[in-house]
Nucleic acid binder design. Structure first.
Length: 358
DNA sequence: CATACGTGGTT
DNA sequence: TAACCAAGTAT
């Protein structure tokens, strides 16, 4: 077994020299002087970073912080504006829960985030990972912060043979065994930095790792890339459907709002048929939301987490923007700022290449 | 415990 | 290029 006491000092020393800088972070030197990142910023960044890359998150984080500087501002915002600001980041339940969480903090906690893992865990959109991360980073709690990076580091450090997701409990216990009471927030961020820059999924740079002297997988000559062990994945089915992009004479595009639950919940869309597993290849101009001169203009493919979608796109142009109760005509000038998920932007761009240029 | 839930980048 | 991956959560 690795010497669990030796890990944290080595890792923190490495972090002091090699930490990455982000808008939501406080550098370790300032942390040592007692400065802490704002819980609101830590929480916002952690939610955005769930299953999402730092690069993708960066502009969204800055945008949210500008639009809503405090959690009370976010709590008071229009949900539709939050969805618009989140559009393109994916996993839209996060945006809905983000708003609910802000409201709960403002209403039930006087605008202050709970400072314990348990208190945080009870809020919408905050699970085991985020509760532990916010508790450690914002409130100096020695919680076991386990994300995908940490699972990878720990699985190699201790050469864990059990597969994910069954190994979750073991990873949590092992992480707790190396988490220090001093600087737990820096330790958590250091583990994640190590996982994303040194202990990478493929081609890890073990020669530069501050923990290589204690890493069981490294010391025993194991095939390091094969950790963590994972259960085999299921293959993605293909679903098909049709989308109808209607443009008025003034350039407005007809949009609808999807129901709050399920895929792309609460986001905007162009009228579409259901997405089925049907493979007969029929076109369905007759499934259009209203009568018009619908012209087929090709198809777009979009890959979701658990299926691929092939969307046949129909377009109609120069329509009279008659008022309808099942949607609205989004003006050309505001279309690019609408709450449109990427798949819908693809469909609109195929029908009218300049529509989203704005 | 398994499944639903986005998107864009990398290999 | 198909596969894999990225700071997970809710049900």
């Amino acid at each position: 077994m690795p010497d669990t006491r030796a890990v944290a000092p080595l890792l923190l020393s490495w972090y002091d020299r090699h930490h990455r800088s982000f808008p939501w972070r406080v550098p370790p030197a300032e942390g040592q002087r007692g400065l802490r990142a704002q819980p609101y910023h830590v929480w916002l960044s952690e939610v955005m970073l769930q299953q999402t890359t730092v690069q993708a998150v960066m502009p969204y984080f800055e945008r949210f912080r500008t639009l809503w500087p405090r959690v009370e501002d976010l709590a008071a915002a229009e949900t539709e504006d939050v969805m618009k600001a989140w559009a393109g980041l994916g996993y839209y339940a996060r945006a809905r829960n983000l708003k609910k969480c802000a409201e709960a903090v403002a209403r039930d906690h006087g605008g202050r985030f709970p400072d314990t893992e348990e208190g945080l865990r009870a809020l919408p959109g905050i699970g085991d990972y985020t509760a532990a991360a916010v508790a450690a980073i914002a409130f100096d709690r020695p919680s076991a912060v386990v994300d995908g990076n940490v699972e990878r580091v720990v699985s190699r450090l201790f050469r864990v043979e059990e597969s994910l997701p069954a190994a979750k409990r073991e990873f949590r216990a092992l992480t707790a065994s190396i988490t220090p009471k001093e600087r737990p927030g820096d330790f958590a961020q250091a583990m994640m930095d190590l996982g994303s820059t040194i202990c990478t999924p493929r081609r890890p740079v073990c020669a530069l790792c501050p923990l290589n002297g204690h890493c069981l997988a490294y010391r025993t000559g194991a095939e390091i890339e094969t950790y963590p062990r994972k259960a085999p994945k299921k293959e993605k089915p293909v679903r098909r459907g049709a989308a109808f992009v209607a443009r008025a004479a003034d350039g407005a595009i007809f949009l609808r709002r999807r129901i709050d639950s399920g895929l792309l919940g609460g986001m905007s869309e162009v009228p579409s048929t259901a997405w089925s597993a049907r493979t007969d290849g029929a076109t369905e101009a007759d499934a259009a939301p209203f009568a018009a001169d619908w012209q087929p203009c090709g198809s777009v493919t979009h890959v979701f987490t658990h299926f691929s979608l092939e969307l046949t796109v129909f377009a109609a142009d120069g329509l009279e923007a008659i008022r309808r109760n099942d949607g609205w005509w989004e003006p050309a000038t505001s279309l690019s700022g609408a709450a449109l998920p990427t798949v819908m932007k693809k469909a609109i761009a195929l029908a009218f290449p300049q529509a989203l240029a704005s």
